[in-house]
Design a protein around this nucleic acid. Structure first.
Lengths: 199, 199
DNA sequence: GTCTATACTTCGATAGAC
DNA sequence: GTCTATCGAAGTATAGAC
């Protein structure tokens, strides 16, 4: 009884265009630039259409996030099914676009409860997937979980890749090459040399 | 000849109060919450005073950043002068407040050129300080730079600490304890057990 | 140094016609 | 599904009195 207001269909073409525009805006100028007016302008549509497809701006942010998370889930599944899961995971996590999203949504989550909850939920799931793959690679390599806990490896990979991408975006690159080389050495020890071209 | 507009003194008490308010607002609700009206409300002052002390909101952000960076520089210097520089650096970089700032400003830098430049400049300086300390600790421990480049250790410490703090803020903590334990083990190997209470 | 008053812009959101 | 029209709130910033 609260809301007689109409909302557009989820499979609408226009809705997808608005999501694309919001996504690009977020990457290029940060979440603060994602306003109904600016999204519409970027999409070549009227601002009111944003409100027709999304009840609130939070709903728009959530829709953007969910679409990305769903894509990412696919990437993860393919990575884990490959013959070099750790290397594939490293390539995904050092992709600038993916990490830019992570950062932007993390900042956004600081003051939007609904988004924080959504992120936390997905993050735990991705973490578990990474952990399973990492644990089995380390086991196969004969590295004891006591000497080197797989979960710590996962966190280290996550942290190092995020720093590399974040700093590069800020124009800081000192030490990056050496760090990438070191990671490459570990990957070779565990899974051998790269067998597929990095995309 | 451009601006006949008056600007308040840098050593003003009121100015400091406004900076405090902006800083807290940024930590609690993210940079988007830092508006002239909200900063003034938090400081118990009129919004116009914000514009009296800062020409633009960017100038306010820069002032907040510089004040923090200056404090941080002092922390670093004390850490590097201590008898356990690596452990001290780890404690600094896992401090939630410091890292929350880093994240918030990194996100802000995405669409504010002046701030990006300021951050990059300071970051390189901090990086160099960390590197010097790390290199000398590793050397003393007899670890060759070829086996383990000091710069990679610095980036790893930075990345891992950031992930720990960022995820904790989002409510994600799986694997954190194990990772902290692993870092502790490395710190003990290099510098021995903690000799000072973590603040 | 702080106030009132104000100009102008942009924001999220809704109602109702087509 | 998209449009015109419009609200009230909040944003940055400035001028000028006290």
């Amino acid at each position: 009884m609260a809301s007689p207001r109409r909302i557009g269909a989820e499979d609408s073409k226009t809705r997808a265009i608005l999501l694309d525009a919001a996504e690009r805006l977020m990457l290029e100028e940060g979440y603060a630039a994602v306003t109904s007016r600016r999204v519409a302008a970027k999409a070549g549509l009227k601002p009111q259409l944003v409100h027709y497809y999304f009840r609130t701006m939070d709903e728009l942010f959530l829709a953007v996030y969910r679409r990305r998370a769903s894509l990412r889930l696919g990437h993860y599944e393919r990575a884990l099914a490959s013959d070099q899961p750790l290397r594939s995971l490293w390539e995904i996590s050092t992709d600038p676009r993916g990490t830019a999203f992570t950062m932007e949504f993390a900042a956004l989550a600081n003051h939007r409860k609904a988004i924080r909850a959504e992120i936390a939920q997905h993050a735990e799931r991705f973490r578990q997937m990474q952990l399973d793959a990492t644990a089995s690679v380390l086991k196969r390599a004969g590295i004891s979980p006591e000497a080197c806990p797989p979960i710590a490896v996962v966190l280290a990979m996550t942290g190092v890749s995020q720093v590399l991408v974040l700093e590069k975006a800020l124009g800081i690159t000192s030490g990056h090459e050496e760090t990438r080389a070191l990671v490459e050495r570990y990957l070779r020890e565990l899974e051998g040399p790269a067998r597929t071209k990095p995309s």
